[in-house]
């Protein structure tokens, strides 16, 4: 459960036209291209870094995890079988949609994130800092969109085997990847871990930052309006500690990204992941603004080698 102490109990929204009542958003899950509530009927309050109540978001359950995995598996053949050019275009479209909603994300990231010092001082993250996060997130997505039709040429190739055979090796997506999104960096961190999973053709089940889920849910709305096939990304909000073991132990999940899990909690999940020999990526918390390189692209691919005789 969230640990932030609310300062006040009534939801506070940005100032609006004084004569008009704002229409508030219901924050739900994103599974198979739809936005359902949790099947459990549960929700939990989310507060801004300053302590204001922002919303009650869906608190996903074990069954929601399973539904999300089913949706991700169903989407895998289509997404992994799409041309790399097509995947690149769809991902670029995501960046276009994200850029078009920059102001919304700047406001949400600003509400969600602030430094300890700023909390102490009772300030919100400055709009400039939030804007820098959103801009970096858009650029990060564009970066990975461009990789989708280039990565295979960087890491694949022909094998000069000693015999009358043509042999080549190519990267292929691992399958369904369970992504435990970073807890602190609510948007830039999320896109930095999700985009490389998708660029190489995997589908994903994402568990959003527990205390800062609103940018992630809004990002799911971006995905839903970007020609991304339903089920390619499924996003759950709720308790990471509750949901992660079900994802880690799920036999139809091929890989796990533990970015959003503190080191002390990773061991138990890695043990569960061994049940079906999951690929587990457990990096140190990086500087999300730094050049990401290509290591995340390599974390969730398989190398396939194909042989055929040469003859007349």
């Amino acid at each position: 459960m969230p640990t932030k102490r609310p300062k006040q109990t009534t939801p506070k929204q940005p100032a609006a036209d004084a004569t008009r009542l704002r229409v508030r958003k219901t924050y739900k899950l994103y599974i198979g291209g739809a936005f359902p509530r949790s099947e459990s009927g549960r929700s939990y309050p989310v507060h801004s870094a300053a302590g204001d109540l922002l919303a009650y978001v869906a608190q996903a359950s074990r069954k929601d995890v399973r539904d999300a995995v089913v949706a991700a598996r169903k989407a895998f053949a289509g997404w992994s079988g799409a041309t790399a050019y097509n995947r690149g275009q769809v991902l670029y479209r995501v960046a276009e949609m994200l850029d078009g909603r920059r102001d919304q994300f700047v406001a949400q990231v600003g509400q969600a994130e602030m430094s300890t010092a700023e909390v102490a001082a009772g300030e919100v993250v400055s709009a400039d800092a939030a804007r820098a996060q959103v801009d970096a997130a858009v650029d990060r997505w564009v970066y990975y969109a461009g990789w989708s039709d280039k990565y295979a040429q960087i890491v694949g190739g022909t094998n000069p085997v000693a015999g009358p055979y043509f042999s080549f090796s190519l990267p292929e997506p691992t399958g369904v990847v369970g992504v435990l999104a970073p807890q602190d960096s609510s948007l830039l961190g999320l896109v930095s871990v999700l985009a490389p999973v998708l660029a190489t053709g995997n589908t994903a089940v994402v568990i959003a930052s527990e205390d800062r889920p609103l940018p992630a849910i809004s990002f799911a709305e971006v995905l839903a309006t970007s020609d991304l096939p339903p089920g390619v990304v499924n996003l759950l909000t709720g308790s990471t500690a509750e949901l992660a073991p079900w994802l880690a132990g799920h036999r139809d999940v091929n890989a796990l990204d533990l970015s959003g899990v503190v080191v002390a909690d990773r061991k138990a999940l890695q043990i569960k992941a061994a049940g079906n020999v999951k690929r587990v990526y457990a990096p140190h918390e990086p500087d999300w603004f730094a050049d990401p390189g290509i290591s995340r692209l390599g974390a969730f691919v398989e190398t396939k080698t194909v042989w055929h005789p040469i003859g007349v």
């Binding site: 094998n159 691992t174 080698t305």
Partner: peptide, 27 residues
């Protein structure tokens, strides 16, 4: 969904050709 696919041949191995599994065949 397999790490090595042999077409019109089988069980070919070469030091220059990557070998290994998908899924529970390892990583």
């Amino acid at each position: 969904r397999a790490g090595v696919v042999w077409a019109n041949t089988f069980n070919r191995f070469d030091p220059s050709a990557p070998f290994g599994g998908y899924k529970e065949s390892g990583f």
